[in-house]
């Protein structure tokens, strides 16, 4: 594949270095000193000095034949512009954006960025898995389908404890996929499956259904 990486900071440089053995890579970077460094390390043909948000630079980089663009600068606005311009002007089939401000992740996906990666959200997910937390832990996202697989640990005081799956009212588009009990035994939920305190429930939901699903699975008994 021909992959264009926008931004040669730590993320961009290491990404290019990891991909270079199997792919054609071009890194676009504004800072000439940083370009020199990447050129020394990975080869002068791998790096181009310029503003990756600028269409003239994109043309010079050969954007029209790029299979994938990864915008990984430290600025979300620049990453969004690179991806939106790559799609609108060059019909690049896949765009990946690094998210610095985790609040931007949903927006970027709604705006048509194919994949988003937020280090903050990933680390947050790991921390939340370790904590007693009454929320959804995102496990994975289906790009382009607007669906997410999430994990919930059923709190002891939750309304659904002791209830059968058929009596749990889920939001439209949400589906329970797996119930793991305290011993670690996984079960495919049937309408008759009873949910217990501390069960781990894995569910699939669309983005809009997230909040409703959290409420359905974790709201305390009145």
């Amino acid at each position: 594949m021909f992959i264009i990486v926008a931004g040669a900071g730590k993320v961009g440089y290491h990404l290019a270095r990891a991909l270079i053995a199997d792919h054609e890579i071009l890194v676009i970077e504004l800072d000439p000193a940083r370009c020199d460094f990447v050129g020394e390390e990975l080869g002068a043909e791998v790096v181009m000095q310029g503003d990756a948000c600028d269409v003239a630079t994109m043309e010079r980089a050969g954007m029209e034949r790029a299979d994938l663009v990864a915008a990984v600068t430290g600025d979300d606005d620049d990453n969004l512009t690179v991806c939106q311009m790559a799609k609108a002007k060059f019909s690049v089939p896949r765009t990946v954006a690094r998210i610095n401000n985790p609040q931007n992740e949903t927006l970027f996906r709604n705006l048509g960025i194919d994949s988003t990666v937020s280090a903050t959200n990933l680390i947050l997910g790991h921390i939340e898995q370790e904590l007693p937390w009454r929320g959804l832990i995102p496990l994975m996202t289906f790009r382009g389908r607007g669906l997410e697989i999430v994990e919930v640990r059923v709190p002891a005081e939750a309304m659904i404890v002791g209830r059968a799956v058929r009596n749990i009212l889920l939001p439209q588009g949400a589906l329970l996929c797996l119930v793991i009990d305290g011993e670690g035994t996984p079960r495919l939920p049937t309408p008759e499956t009873t949910v217990h305190a501390d069960d781990i429930v894995v569910a699939v939901t669309n983005i809009e259904g997230e909040e409703g699903l959290r409420e359905a699975l974790t709201s305390p008994r009145p």
Binding site: D75, D77, D78, L80, T81, L107, L111
Partner: peptide, 26 residues
């Protein structure tokens, strides 16, 4: 430009503000 474009899209899509104007120099 990029800041303006991001903020405008946040205003439009997150806060559903109907009238969103944006200065874009390029």
């Amino acid at each position: 430009d990029n800041r303006n474009a991001l903020a405008s899209q946040v205003a439009r899509h997150v806060f559903n503000i109907k009238r969103v104007g944006s200065v874009i120099f390029d």
